[in-house]
Design a protein around this nucleic acid. Structure first.
Lengths: 185, 185
DNA sequence: AAGTCCATGTAACCAGTTACATGATTGC
DNA sequence: GCAATCATGTAACTGGTTACATGGACTT
């Protein structure tokens, strides 16, 4: 069973919006948590509506455009989302192309290995910069009230923090591996 | 373009083996880096053989069983793998069910949020234990020579280290979030 | 007697991605 | 004039997962 439905419900729980908006939002954010495609959003919205988890709120019409259908979660949808959030989560090891490369690092010359790790480390640093800037922006907006559990901002900050922490750990890991390779190279 | 081919090439570069072995190996290890399915392995092996990146080495036959086809990488396959390993790697944010839940944590009661985080933290601790045990076992086997870049063991240890480091970072993150929630709870 | 392991392979199914179609408006 | 933006939706394609088929030996 796919998780797009929860990505959709979660975004709609924060603010009623259209399928088009959902796709853009899900991809634009600095931390693209769960990107949604145009190909899946419209069938999914139809399914969720049929199950009574969301409902069409309004249909703005700008006459020269197809009507914009704005959806919102129903109380049933909210409850389904809450149940899923509270349910135990199995751990799964994420697929990671970089790690697949590292697993084969013994096949290339130390110089090339070093190049790969250094390059990726730089990518990670850039990414971390973006994350930290965004996090600072968000935390400012919250004015210290972001410790409130019931505030969506609180959840957003938690997610950003995890992204930053994971990225910092990975940068440090690169540093270690570089040291190991350089000792030999 | 799919990455299974590199998972397959990488495992065959370590040791010639059959499709059946590849599937088991790719899933059995403590760190299931890139699981392969029966549904994809045989077509993929056929494709790689057709491209000349691998070749069938031998076919053991135990008469009451289908013949076991053992494959090995060719020099062309080895080079293709090396090129891919050295090529720049784009960063992608991994999809993570747990983070999707965290993003919706503001919807549930602090008690339930705490339960979710604590539960997942325990899962992570167990996982970390497995990783560390496996890592200790592997590092012993290497007898200190595992700093050699050209040794596959070196690459394996790097991957395990990253897994452990990421998991520790995530456990620490859970601790922080628990503190934030408990301060309110 | 029933189930698991070896070992290949195919077929059906499901999910994600990309491309197309519409059509007026705005920006270069 | 050409591309991009808004906004819906469908169709085609690609890739991953699950289920099935074969069949003897071994375990419970």
């Amino acid at each position: 069973m796919s998780l797009v439905r929860y990505a959709v419900l979660g975004l709609l729980a924060r603010a009623p919006q259209s399928g088009y908006d959902l796709v853009r939002r899900s991809k634009e954010r600095v931390s693209p948590l769960w990107p949604i495609n145009y190909g899946q959003i419209y069938p999914e919205l139809a399914r969720l509506a049929a199950e009574g988890l969301i409902e069409q709120q309004a249909a703005e019409r700008q006459d020269y455009r197809p009507e914009k259908k704005v959806y919102a979660v129903t109380s049933a949808g909210r409850e389904a989302l809450q149940r899923w959030v509270a349910a135990p989560t199995p751990m799964q090891v994420p697929h990671d192309e970089f790690m697949l490369k590292v697993h084969n690092l013994w096949l290339v010359e130390p110089q090339e290995a070093l190049g790969q790790i250094r390059g990726y480390q730089q990518t990670l640093r850039d990414w971390l910069g973006d994350l930290e800037r965004f996090q600072a922006m968000i935390e400012q907006r919250g004015d210290g009230s972001h410790t409130r559990n019931s505030d969506p901002l609180f959840a957003t900050i938690c997610v950003l923090r995890w992204g930053a922490q994971r990225t910092r750990a990975q940068i440090a890991w690169c540093e270690d591996v570089i040291a190991m390779l350089a000792a030999e190279g």
